[in-house]
């Protein structure tokens, strides 16, 4: 069992499992699966300053979000220590394209070591991917009212047009970053 679990989980196992978090969270406490609410709650809890967007009852309404992301962190720890992290067997085309960007031709771990290390933070690539990437994720998820889980799973599964628009826009943004921004700056 443990050995089977240590292999990468195929999409037809992981996808339905992820989908089941939607009814599970609704049954546990009428919560909608979505992670970006936690970023707003963290701001409200941690960052000082009087901003209307963060003046809300975060303890009452989004404390569950913080517990959920704390769990996600712990889940990452357990996955890595008990089950082991795998290096994705990505397509040869993608591997070549990444190598062409000068990010190494070896796929080891979940993210390229040439970019996603503390040392690489001082390089243009590291700063762009790690720091700017994160900033845009936080800004965009809050502005767009959700992320891959909130819009892509909960929103689409409840057939909401705003979520469909958001997912199309997310994809357009991702294509722009992949085919325009990365070749330009890397």
């Amino acid at each position: 069992m443990l050995q089977w679990l240590s292999h990468p989980w195929p999409w037809y196992v992981a996808g339905p499992l992820i989908g089941l978090f939607v009814p599970a969270l609704l049954l546990i406490g009428n919560k909608q699966l979505g992670v970006s609410g936690s970023l707003r709650a963290l701001c409200a809890a941690v960052v000082p300053g009087k901003v209307e967007f963060f003046s809300y009852d975060w303890k009452g309404t989004t404390a569950w979000n913080l517990a959920f992301v704390a769990g996600i962190f712990l889940g990452g720890v357990i996955a890595a220590t008990v089950l082991g992290v795998t290096s994705p067997a990505i397509s040869a085309h993608t591997r070549d394209a990444i190598a062409g960007l000068g990010m190494g031709s070896q796929v080891t771990g979940l993210a390229p070591v040439s970019v996603f290390t503390w040392k690489a933070l001082l390089t243009l690539r590291g700063a762009t991917c790690v720091l700017l990437g994160g900033f845009l994720v936080g800004f965009g998820a809050s502005y767009g009212g959700g992320c891959t889980s909130g819009h892509g799973i909960t929103g689409l599964a409840s057939l909401q047009l705003p979520s469909l628009i958001a997912m199309i826009a997310i994809f357009v943004g991702g294509l722009f970053a992949t085919f325009v921004i990365m070749p330009l700056i890397f």
Binding site: V35, G76, G138, I170
Partner: peptide, 25 residues
Amino acid sequence: GGSIFGIGWALSGACPGPLFALAGS
């Protein structure tokens, strides 16, 4: 907001949930 998020997702390779999972892993 969606487009900005998409750019960030492609650059960082992580959306809000995975951020915490990656750090933990």
